[in-house]
């Protein structure tokens, strides 16, 4: 079930809250407390905009247990406009072809389910950007 594990991660999973390094200003996601750039303490919270673009993408057909119901699904490396990259599923794709560089935005969706009586895990996925927001 891992209830406490998913609870601990709720800020980053639901709201895309990461960190900014007070020493070198690097934006950090997922949060890791030590800046990967300058190795100083970095615990200042930072709210990411949820906007980014597709760095690469592919389809998972043979899914791990807990994800079979959604297969096939699209996974991507998404480069956030603030700099960091993250791994997420793409969703709400419609008929639009996916391309490297395609603008996307964060939405909250169900990530996995552990059977009929199991817990549902929610978190971020990314969809094609609906409005061209100014950056």
């Amino acid at each position: 079930m891992e209830i406490s594990r998913h609870w601990r991660l709720k800020r980053q999973r639901y709201a895309l809250i990461g960190e900014v390094c007070p020493h070198c200003q690097k934006k950090i996601f997922p949060p890791r407390d030590i800046c990967p750039e300058c190795s100083e303490d970095a615990r200042t919270l930072y709210q990411f905009s949820g906007r980014g673009e597709v760095y690469s993408y592919t389809t998972v057909y043979q899914a791990p247990s807990g994800y079979e119901a959604n297969a096939p699904y699209t996974v991507a490396l998404v480069k956030l406009v603030e700099g960091p990259m993250l791994t997420a599923q793409l969703t709400d794709l419609g008929d639009e072809p996916i391309e490297v560089g395609m603008p996307v935005e964060m939405v909250t969706r169900k990530l996995r389910s552990d059977g009929e009586r199991g817990m549902l895990v929610y978190g971020y996925k990314f969809r094609p950007r609906l409005i061209e927001a100014s950056e």
Partner: peptide
Amino acid sequence: VHGITPTA
């Protein structure tokens, strides 16, 4: 947690 596999 996002359903990624080594092949993906």
